[in-house]
Design a protein around this nucleic acid. Structure first.
Length: 293
DNA sequence: CGCATCCCCTGCCTGC
DNA sequence: TGCAGGCAGGGGATGC
């Protein structure tokens, strides 16, 4: 579920209760999510203070006071929910909206400031790990990650360097986390529509023969930045599982131009064609065949 | 190596 | 109403 804007929204919601607080107790309610938890996961977290909460691509990274980092990935259906009062969790207030089954609260963090934070993940494609902070950048989860699309180094030249020579369709290349880190199916579709670029075009064709970026690649870079910033501003997109940490909904889904809009009118002024759905690399692509070339 | 396919898991929606 | 099948925001393993 969560792409960069959803993860960033979660980060901003968690930071006020996590940063500066200690884990007084952590409940690990099953042996694994997508992967097994590291040995002694809950025990190693107990007593640790959170120094900062960051994000890289779709990963949340909590820096702890013992020079380790708690790394968390939400997979497709992961969400965090904060219950402020000490009695809230026991009173069933974590998931009163009924859309979240408390059976899927796989980890519960008890914090020194009285907050309880539950990690809920029905499909269990998410995972958590504890990694020494000094080893993070060389860790297999992070070492191959590509450009951070809201970072300073993301520009047309850098993207051109990553796309050069690629015969894969643009859609697949933008989903590849070693090219741009943090985009997912929604925002790739939305950015390509904004840039009027066909998802089926070969990615390498946007690179000039001298290796520099084409003008259209510069437009794509700006469209990616814009759609991500607008989505963060809207609290992300809530299709099924995404919730802010207070349980409320993001609302960027109402601003989708093509994603999940098969058969609807293309929103480009004067276009008049209908949004199409195709499957690329096993995943749906929504686009306009008339104004995306 | 690059790329495509399949798979992990639960839940929701559609159509019969 | 029940049930089977398809599909879902991610990404890792496999095979060509």
């Amino acid at each position: 579920m969560p792409e960069l804007p959803e993860v960033e929204t979660v980060r901003r919601g968690l930071a006020p209760v996590f940063v500066g607080a200690r884990f007084t107790r952590v409940e690990q309610r099953r042996p694994d999510l997508r992967f097994a938890f590291p040995p002694m996961f809950a025990e190693r977290l107990a007593g640790r203070r959170v120094e900062s909460l960051g994000r890289r691509a779709k990963y949340l990274i909590a820096d702890l006071d013992d020079a380790s980092a708690l790394v968390m990935h939400l997979g497709m259906s992961g969400s965090f929910r904060i219950a402020a009062g000490a009695g809230d969790a026991e009173a069933g207030l974590f998931h009163h909206e009924r859309l979240k089954n408390p059976v899927h609260d796989h980890v519960v963090f008890h914090l020194s400031n009285g907050a309880r934070v539950a990690y809920n993940d029905p499909r269990r494609f998410g995972f958590m790990d504890l990694i020494a902070r000094a080893e993070l950048s060389e860790h297999k989860l992070f070492r191959d990650l590509g450009l951070e699309p809201l970072g300073n180094s993301f520009d047309a030249s850098a993207l051109a360097a990553r796309l050069a020579g690629k015969s894969a369709p643009l859609k697949a290349a933008l989903l590849d986390q070693s090219v741009v880190a943090g985009l997912g199916n929604i925002y790739v579709c939305e950015a390509m529509h904004r840039a009027h670029l066909s998802p089926q075009r070969a990615a390498g064709a946007l690179v000039r023969r001298d290796g520099g970026p084409s003008a259209r690649l510069a437009v794509l870079v700006q469209c990616i930045r814009d759609v991500l910033n607008e989505a963060i501003e809207a609290g992300g997109s809530s299709l099924r599982d995404h919730r802010l940490t207070d349980g409320s909904l993001g609302y960027f889904q109402h601003r989708f131009r093509v994603y999940d809009r098969e058969g609807e009118l293309c929103p480009t002024p004067g276009c008049g064609a209908k949004v199409k759905r195709i499957v690329q690399a096993g995943r749906s692509t929504f686009y306009c065949g008339k104004c995306q070339k």
